[in-house]
Amino acid sequence: MQTLDWVVLIGTLVSIVAYGTWKTRGSKNVEDYIKGGNEAKWWTIGLSVMATQASAITFLSTPGQAFHDGMGFVQFYFGLPIAMIIICLVFIPLYYRLKVYTAYEFLENRFDLKTRSLTAILFLIQRGLAAGITIYAPAIILSAVLGWNLNLLIIIIGILVIIYTVSGGTKAVSITQKQQMAVIFTGMFIAFFLIVSYLPENITFTKALDIAGASGKMDILDFSFDFNNRYTFWSGIIGGTFLALSYFGTDQSQVQRYLSGKSVKEMQMGLIFNGLLKVPMQFFILLVGVMVFVFYQFNSSPINFNPTATKTVMNSSYAEEYEQLQNQQDEIFLKKKELMTAYADTKTEAIASQIANYNDGDRANRNAAKDLISKANKERVLSVETNDKDYVFIHFILNNLPRGLIGLLLAVILSAAMSSTASELNALSSTTTMDLYKRSFVQNKNENHYLKASKWFTLAWGILAILIACVAYLADNLIQLVNIIGSIFYGNVLGIFLLAFFFKYIKGNAVFVAALITQAIVIAGWWYDWMPYLWLNVFGCALVMGIAFIIQIINSLQDEHA
């Protein structure tokens, strides 16, 4: 980090925050603050939806995922366009007709108050935790590679987001997201072209793809029905539709983005925009990771990209073994480099199979390094992350990009963290104000009272997110824990919404009782480890719908006999 990097980084972040705060000062009422005065055009909604979903981890972790496992992760997004169409056709017209502020408000109209309150509370629990992790995840990585103070970084990110989100509400969130997306794409495009330009002179872009293909990184599609492969065409189409439907259709941090639209048409076009661009965007981010992989076929790389992990093992009794592994890795690298150059010119099968052999050695070495890190963790009673995919891209950035561009790429990562956190705080506040505070606790006050309450709730959730991020290092693998908590609640909530939209036969009492029973069973299913946690989503959704039907049938029969 040089002076120029600091100027670019601080200049970018502060000017976005200042512009967003100044431009959206003076919300007149709650509708202005929560729905942005219903003025948003389709492209604002589209960018806002994409900026909310793309967090810092998208840009840190996805290239690392491609570096290690290739392009297959793009399949995870194949269901998203299908979900967009379902939401456009079914969810948006109903949300719009009822003029709701939150998705859960719709459930009171369709079922009853207790179902609305239950889903709102489930949302607040999981999204409140997730907002803390949205800040924590990039902060822990950046503090490890740059030596910054972790808690100070968390507090700075949190305060920057709080400033404009509290003052301007939804409008401030969407205005800043447009600029953040501009920074993100500028930075990523520059990084991509620089990586390609850093390759040896005789390695063109297509030759780089040949080299990536020889190492199996270009296996984009997997049509097998293998449950053990997390990312296949089928899991993307089925599981991806399901997850996107619950995220974009029932999670207030996304629903609030399109509810700010001027009309049904603008809202629908915003989601269509997302459905058109999401897959190419993820493909591009993964391609950046593949190019980083090719770069490291011609430039030496550490055996594990996480500097904290390397430090841990070098300060343990396994240091010598680890150094031997790194030396072996350097030998493999030199041999592979020759082979890669030869393969780029000839593309012969014989060389490809030699490359595959060396890749196996490379993988075995990296896994052996991970084992040593785990052993060093045990010896020193630490819990350092052994999986280094979050560190690959940032390692490349810090060690290879020129002055000024390091600052720009750090601004990309922090902008992505801020754009997601802002949407989350904004939605947490709206749900607290409209679904709980105004609905059940303090009714019949004037507009100004609820506007102030919304601002205070935004501030409170922001402070809570900072606190969660600051204590997050205490939990082992907290990011996975948040995903598990999401899986425990998400399926149930989606099931409730599907019953609301598609099954008029089911009434409020049946849904509420079914939701409580389902939640208890899903938590038991997680506790006793009945299935991989991602499947709890599907299980919870199917269960709540099945139980609600049974209860409704029993209720109907009792009514007939009465």
Binding site: M71, V74, F78, P81, I82, M84, I85, C88, L89, L209, D210, A212, G213, M218, D219, I220, L221, Q268, M269, I272, G275, L276, V279, P280, F283
Partner: peptide, 30 residues
């Protein structure tokens, strides 16, 4: 009119189908 909406939903599905076909050819080429 409804017709225009059908067009934009068809556009999303067709565009994504084209992406997948492109991915298939990229995968086969490299």
């Amino acid at each position: 009119p409804k017709e225009r909406w059908k067009k934009s939903y068809t556009l999303v599905l067709v565009a994504n189908a084209i992406y997948i076909v492109l991915f298939y050819f990229i995968m086969k080429s490299f």
